[in-house]
């Protein structure tokens, strides 16, 4: 008889780590701690890379936003950049057309709201449908939104975008922390959700939705809830991206290519884990903007997508779950 299931009298902290962090062993905890420490101290050991790391933090937010719905429930969205792009464009359009000095405490919430509205427009009609309809509609959604940006170019700046958005800061160290801290906070919340009952239900929906429905869970409501959490996350990231570059173009924030990058990051990092996509974002952005630039601006895309293809074929579970479980098996398994 397994005594693991008899846990009366368990200390609170231990219960917390067990319930929400998946019962890590001491090596896993140490690794996570080292990674966190490394992230917090980047200016001291990788000062050259502050800009690209800051950008990676924003993409980590996008990847987490995608993962909490698509990585968990397997309702694969190919148009998530419509949410973050919608948020970024809300910031840009307000600044460009209404008031160039509009304060961030107004534009930010409105941008997040835009992401939520766009998200609900996708989700409410489609999450009840089985089959590929959800994915197709997200794809169509982002294509339609991109065309709308071109058509209403007078308000959106068309292909060349809006440059009136204020930049977060020119101090790279500040920029790094302004993006890292929100990313870690969002990550903490979403990791807790992912490891909780809610996350387990979402992942179970992804594996066998019919079974979960017959366990008494309103799967539609849970999917919508995940989508809402996703949309808020994407909205935050989208507004941050607008202020990161100080400009918005369809190519930077909206086009379907950006959506596909989010999928790629989550796949590389490890779908359904939240923490995996964070790592995936850093790997992907560093590859894209640092390592693969040896192939030129256009050539790097080929290299990048070939690498993603490699992962899809050979390492489908992603890098970080793989590493995590390797570390977990050091010392012969779990601590008692």
């Amino acid at each position: 008889m397994s005594n693991e299931y008899d846990r009366s009298g368990e200390p609170v902290v231990q219960r917390f780590t067990r319930e929400f962090l998946g019962e890590p062993n001491r090596y896993q905890i140490a690794s996570a701690g080292v990674a966190l420490l490394a992230l917090l101290t980047v200016p001291f050991w990788a000062g050259q890379y502050l800009y690209v790391f800051a950008l990676a933090s924003i993409w980590a937010i996008f990847a987490m936003g995608w993962d909490i719905i698509s990585g968990h429930t397997n309702y694969i969205s190919f148009g998530h950049s419509a949410l973050s792009g919608g948020a970024a464009y809300t910031t840009g359009v307000l600044v460009h057309n209404v008031n160039p000095d509009m304060a961030m405490y107004i534009t930010f919430p409105l941008s997040i709201l835009a992401a939520i509205v766009i998200g609900l427009l996708f989700a409410v009609p489609t999450l009840r449908l089985e089959g590929p309809y959800f994915s197709l509609i997200t794809l169509l959604g982002v294509l339609v939104l991109t065309q709308l940006v071109y058509i209403y170019g007078e308000y959106t700046g068309g292909e060349l975008g809006i440059t009136a958005v204020s930049t977060l800061t020119y101090n790279l160290t500040n920029l790094y922390y302004y993006t890292l801290i929100p990313m870690l906070l969002i990550g903490a919340v979403l990791v807790v959700v992912s490891q909780s009952n809610i996350g387990r239900i979402l992942r179970a929906i992804g594996e066998n939705e019919a079974a979960i429905e017959s366990s008494g869970i309103d799967t539609t409501r849970f999917k919508l809830w995940a989508f809402l959490m996703s949309a808020i996350t994407m909205g935050i990231g989208g507004a941050m991206l607008a202020h990161f570059y100080g400009n918005i173009t369809p190519s930077t924030v909206l086009v379907v290519d950006r959506s596909l990058e989010m999928v790629a990051i989550a796949v590389i990092g490890g779908m359904g884990t939240i923490a995996g996509p964070i790592g995936g974002a850093f790997v992907f952005i560093i590859l894209r903007d640092e390592v693969l630039t040896v192939f030129g601006s256009t050539g790097r895309w080929l290299a990048l997508w070939l690498i993603v293809l490699f992962f899809l074929v050979f390492l489908r579970d992603g890098i970080f779950p793989f590493i995590w479980s390797r570390i977990g098996s050091i010392g012969g398994g779990r601590d008692e």
């Binding site: 050259q48 800009y51 570059y245 100080g246 173009t249 190519s251 930077t252």
Partner: peptide, 20 residues
């Protein structure tokens, strides 16, 4: 560096040129 005629690419590239 290559701007690829994109404001964001140019922004990143010039930031790195200034700082690195």
């Amino acid at each position: 560096a290559d701007s690829a005629a994109q404001p964001s690419e140019a922004h990143s590239a010039v930031t790195e040129m200034i700082n690195r």
